[in-house]
Computed example of a mutant assay.
Amino acid sequence: MYAADTTTISQEVGGTGRSREISIGRRFYSQDYVRAKDGRYTWKSPSVLGKWSYGQNFPGVVRGEDLINGINPGFLRLGAFNTAYSADGGTFEGVRTTVFNGVVTVPELGERQAGMFFGTEQEDGSWRGSITWKLWVGPDNLPRRFHAVLRFAPTHGGGGVETMTMNTIYRGWGSPVKITAPPKHLITDDW
């Protein structure tokens, strides 16, 4: 992956969270906030809405075969190794699909800039758990949709199980993609 433009929407204690990250090579731009039901922003990064924080990606931050998604060969191998099943997936956005699905339990689950990741050996991570996943693939063998439910359990006892749901849609295969950096006047070093 050379460039990515990702938006994440999440339900947080204080309201709805929204983050957008743009990576181009090792350059990284981000905007994050949590907005309460009454419209107030309870958290912003950077502190001025509409601005972008800037940084440099470390090698391996945006790449790696340990990312949980429907286009990562490492995750696909892990899923296939742990008994994946296939069936008629119906039609998704006008394309007939086959759905592959399975469940895998891993000794490490975590998050980094590029997304959620798994580990096959327990490291210094504080979470382990299961990944229940489905991948819809078109007749051209290209992914169309990926859905996963991650159940996080603390590695060192205590605390309850946390759940996260991922839903990714893949479109525009073969179409040119242009990801551009935010304008310079919107970039700040405020994190």
Rank of each mutant, 00 (worst) to 15 (best):
T120Y: 03
W191K: 05
D38Y: 12
T6Q: 11
E162M: 02
F118C: 00
P154C: 05
V13H: 12
T98C: 01
E93T: 02
N167Y: 04
K44A: 06
S19Q: 09
D38C: 06
E65F: 03
T165V: 12
M116W: 10
A36I: 05
H156G: 14
G39V: 02
Y170S: 11
E123K: 13
I24D: 08
E12P: 10
G125E: 03
T91D: 15
S53Q: 13
S10Q: 08
V48Y: 09
P143H: 08
K37H: 09
T155F: 02
G129T: 05
V104R: 01
P107R: 08
S23H: 12
N82S: 14
T165I: 08
V149Y: 00
R35Y: 05
G172H: 04
L49R: 04
T105N: 07
Q11F: 08
V61I: 01
V106I: 04
F28Y: 08
N141C: 00
R26H: 11
L78C: 02
K184C: 01
T83Y: 08
R112P: 08
I9P: 07
G157D: 13
R26S: 15
F92L: 02
N69R: 14
N69P: 03
Y33Q: 08
G50F: 00
L109S: 10
T163M: 12
V161R: 10
E108S: 15
R27M: 09
G129E: 07
V104A: 04
F152L: 09
W191D: 06
G39R: 04
A148K: 03
R20Y: 07
Y54A: 15
D124F: 05
P46D: 12
E21L: 11
N101W: 14
I187H: 01
F118A: 00
T98P: 01
R26V: 11
T165S: 10
V104L: 03
E108D: 14
R144C: 05
W52C: 12
R20S: 13
P143E: 13
D189W: 02
S45G: 08
T163L: 06
H185M: 14
P73Y: 04
T168F: 15
D88C: 02
P73L: 05
F146G: 05
Q11Y: 07
K184L: 10
R171V: 00
Q31P: 13
S19M: 11
P176Y: 07
W43M: 09
G129P: 03
G172D: 14
T8I: 13
S19G: 13
F28D: 09
P46V: 11
V161M: 11
Q122W: 08
S175K: 14
F81M: 15
Y29N: 12
S45V: 04
N82V: 11
L76K: 04
K134M: 13
E12V: 01
D140G: 07
D5W: 08
N141P: 00
G102Y: 00
S53R: 14
G17F: 03
S23N: 13
G39Q: 04
F117P: 00
P176L: 09
G94V: 06
I68D: 06
